[in-house]
C-alpha cells in the first residue's frame, strides 16, 4: 500500500478549510461564472469557504475548496449553479 505523506497530527494549511484534494466530492452543484462583469465583489466575503478570490485575471473560484452551497449565486448576478452530475436520475 502506497501511503500518502501526511502530518502525524491531522491538520491543514492556513486558509484551507478542508484538507482535501478536491472538496468537490461533497458538491451537488458547482458555481460557474456566467458574466464576470456583473459579479458583485461582496461574494468574496459571502463565500463561507473563502473559495472566491480576485486576481489580475478577474474572479477565480477554487473548486478545491468550494463546497457548492450556492450562496455566491444567490448573492450576486454573474454566477450560476450547474449540476455536477448530469447522468440518469432516480432511485438506484
Amino acid at each position: 500500500m502506497a501511503l500518502k505523506q501526511l502530518p502525524i497530527v491531522p491538520s491543514g494549511d492556513p486558509g484551507g478549510l478542508a484538507e482535501s484534494a478536491n472538496a468537490g466530492v461533497q458538491r451537488i452543484n458547482r458555481p460557474v461564472i456566467s458574466d464576470a462583469t456583473k459579479i458583485d465583489p461582496i461574494v468574496i466575503l459571502f463565500c463561507p469557504d473563502g473559495a472566491i478570490s480576485l486576481d489580475e485575471s478577474g474572479f477565480v473560484i477554487s473548486y478545491k475548496f468550494c463546497k457548492g452551497c450556492g450562496i455566491c449565486a444567490k448573492e450576486s448576478e454573474g454566477i450560476v449553479m450547474v449540476p455536477e452530475y448530469t447522468g440518469p436520475k432516480g432511485i438506484f
Binding site: 501526511l6 482535501s20 484534494a21
Partner: peptide, 15 residues
C-alpha cells in the same frame, strides 16, 4: 495550521 480539519475520503483512511 488548522488542527482537526475536515478530512476528505482521500485522506481519512490513511490517517
Amino acid at each position: 495550521r488548522g488542527v482537526n480539519t475536515v478530512t476528505s475520503p482521500d485522506f481519512y483512511p490513511y490517517y
